[in-house]
Design a protein around this nucleic acid. Structure first.
Length: 587
RNA sequence: GCGCCUGUAGCUCAGUUGGAUAGAGCAACGGAUUUCUAAUCCGUAGGUCGCAGGUUCGAGUCCUGCCAGGCGUACCA
């Protein structure tokens, strides 16, 4: 099924064109601000009238006269300066709900007709250290973007641009060899605490000039391709992966080692990129470094701002790596679009990167480039979240604490459940709460991290959503206990009967799911999804409070069971499939 | 200095190419439980959308100026 907004948009736009003879007539259909105006409103007549300098109300009248929406709506109203108000007809609503029910996988939502290859660059931890709270947002927002795009039908290529190369590896290699003199024998090493390992190496580097020199030589030999150095480097990277892969798994983030294209991957491609940009005349030496000067960027003095691609000592920078990665993605991965999910502080870098790669013309076709930014996770004091001693908080510790806290709540609310089930609920609720809290904020703003708030049962939180889901599911269990044949009821349903306002309200919200996903995808805003899901859970709770399901009259019960079924499917799809947050059957 | 982001209820935040009387949650106050999970629901109260101009039928949204905070701005990522 095409979404309701798409159908209305297309029909009304066509009518607007027919009336005015204009080609481009956006109908601007959206849910109404207030239910008294109906279910959807089209605002396009006013803008069009303004463009043509004619009476907007008149345009709306002519458009409505031309429209035939009998299959979908009651007859449209015109209000105010030229709003077209639309109310879904009961028959249409009924059909939509039944069709949604008939497609349990996609909930009746069509995939795009022309799938694209979309590369999403996200997470990108520095492998020499444990993942910390600073990696949370890129990791989960990126994961959600991938899930939404895949659901839309696109071919998504995840790229985890891990920091697995660079000067710090000399230090780490030297330190590891010092700690494990027998390492040359290709034995397995275990780094119990990555953070401690990194710190110790750094301390040795800072305090011991001899060690520092060894470390510098290790960098040179590593970058020169020395096989022993490479072997040790690989051990460190493998060890690091052992630390961060479980975090991805705990977060239900769909990243695997196969998605890794770390900085090291591009090592051989850096020099050719610089040579190519020099050849094309896009880059030139400046103060000993090689720079591109993209148009329109100036520094403090008002001089052209350099995008430095090679240092005066010959070394490459992250600009170089990102250029090489961009080239690889367009030339080799054949990307139609590339999405970068990094914090907002890198905006300038990506603007310059995008200018440079567009000028470089490495591929004939246009590649759509997007930098999806996000704000900072703050502590209660309004500054970036840190431990009391000022260190960054390890993601593992943060998630562990969330699960422990969720476990305390479960224990308080439901002490009699089996221990294993309580633990599973605690994991789903704890991890879900952290993720949901992040998603429910506009990604562009900073937010204050607050366990109590995100784990609260009331409000726009994961527990509230999960509870709503568990309540729907309990109806199914209860039905089974009472010998009510839910599937039989639903199978016999040919017309959904919606009498109570709570039923109608819930039903009308259910049929908006596809449009919500589309809106969330426009600029990659997961909070559109959480807002929708929260409203859905609220509407369900109202329905639940005022409309008995199992005890309903036999002519009402199937329709109510259908509403329950679709609510559960939609919540589960949104939470689990698109946001990667687990639901639980009981809590 | 310049650029980017942010500024909306006591608090945390939404607000979808400019649309109707600016919404939600928390906190506060008042109510609802013989009924499918009360981890719920219903109601009340709470606003100069940072400030000042402008554009127009209409501005939280667009433009200009200003104020406050954050971030960035040549060889870290």
């Amino acid at each position: 099924m095409r979404t309701i907004v798409e159908i209305l948009e297309q029909q009304i736009a066509a009518a607007m064109s027919a009336v005015t003879g204009e080609e481009h007539c956006p109908a601007i259909v959206k849910p109404t601000a207030d239910p008294k105006f109906g279910d959807y409103q089209a605002n396009g007549a006013m803008g069009l009238a303004k463009r043509l300098k004619i009476n907007p109300r008149r345009v709306a009248e002519q458009v409505v006269a031309k429209l035939d929406l009998r299959d979908i709506c009651e007859s449209p109203d015109i209000a105010g300066p030229g709003f077209i108000n639309l109310r879904l007809s009961p028959g249409f609503l009924s059909d939509r709900l039944l069709e949604t029910r008939a497609d349990p996988i996609r909930l009746g939502i069509e995939a795009v007709s022309t799938p694209q290859t979309i590369v999403v660059d996200f997470s990108s931890p520095n492998v020499a250290k444990q993942m910390h709270v600073g990696h949370l947002r890129s990791t989960i927002i990126g994961d959600c973007i991938c899930r939404m795009l895949e659901f839309e039908g696109h071919r998504v290529i995840r790229q985890n641009h891990i920091g697995d190369w660079g000067t710090q590896f000399g230090m780490l290699i030297a330190y590891l060899r010092e700690e494990n003199p027998g390492l040359d024998e290709a034995g397995r090493v275990e780094i119990q605490d990555l953070e401690q390992f990194y710190r110790s190496a750094k301390t040795r580097f800072d305090e011991d000039p001899t060690f520092a020199e060894t470390a510098r030589q290790a960098v040179v030999s590593l970058q020169g391709g020395d096989s022993l150095s490479l072997a040790i480097w690989k051990k460190i990277v493998d060890e690091s992966r052992r630390h961060y892969q479980p975090i991805y798994d705990a977060l239900s983030v769909q990243l695997t080692p196969a998605d890794e294209r770390g900085e090291s991957f591009y090592n051989e491609l850096l020099a050719p990129v610089v040579a190519d940009l020099l050849d094309q005349g896009l880059a030139r030496p400046s103060d000993g470094a090689i720079c591109v000067f993209p148009e329109g960027f100036v520094n403090k003095e008002g001089d052209p701002l350099p995008f430095i691609i090679q240092k005066s000592d010959g070394g490459f920078l992250y600009a170089t790596t990102d250029l090489a990665a961009n080239r690889y993605r367009r030339e080799t991965l054949r990307a139609d679009a590339i999405v970068y999910v990094t914090d907002a502080r890198q905006k300038l870098h990506f603007e310059m990167l995008f200018h440079t790669v567009r000028a470089a013309r490495w591929t004939d076709r246009e590649v759509d480039l997007a930098h999806v930014t996000f704000g900072t996770v703050l502590g209660a004091d309004g500054t970036p979240l840190k431990t009391r001693s000022g260190d960054s908080i390890k993601l593992k510790d943060l998630l562990d604490e969330a699960v422990v806290r969720a476990g305390e709540v479960v224990e308080r609310k439901n002490p009699d459940l089996p221990a294993e089930q309580k633990a599973a609920i605690a994991r789903a609720v704890g991890i879900g709460a952290v993720k949901y809290a992040d998603y429910s904020n506009n990604r562009t703003s900073d937010y204050v991290f607050d366990f109590d708030k995100m784990l609260a049962m009331e409000g726009n939180t994961a527990p509230y959503m999960q509870y709503a889901y568990a309540r729907v599911q309990s109806i199914g269990r209860k039905a089974a206990d009472e010998g009510i044949d839910v599937d039989g009821d639903l199978a016999g349903l040919s017309r959904v009967h919606l009498a109570e306002p709570e039923e109608l309200d819930l039903a009308k919200h259910l049929v908006r799911y596809g449009d919500t996903i589309k809106a969330a995808l426009v600029d990659y805003h997961p909070n559109y999804l959480t807002t929708y899901l929260h409203e859905l859970a609220q509407k369900f709770s109202r329905f639940y409070a005022s409309c008995p399901v199992l005890a309903a009259d036999i002519d009402q019960r199937p329709s109510r069971l259908l509403l329950c079924d679709l609510t559960a499917r939609t919540i589960k799809h949104g939470l689990t499939h698109l946001l990667g947050i687990e639901v639980v059957e009981q809590m």
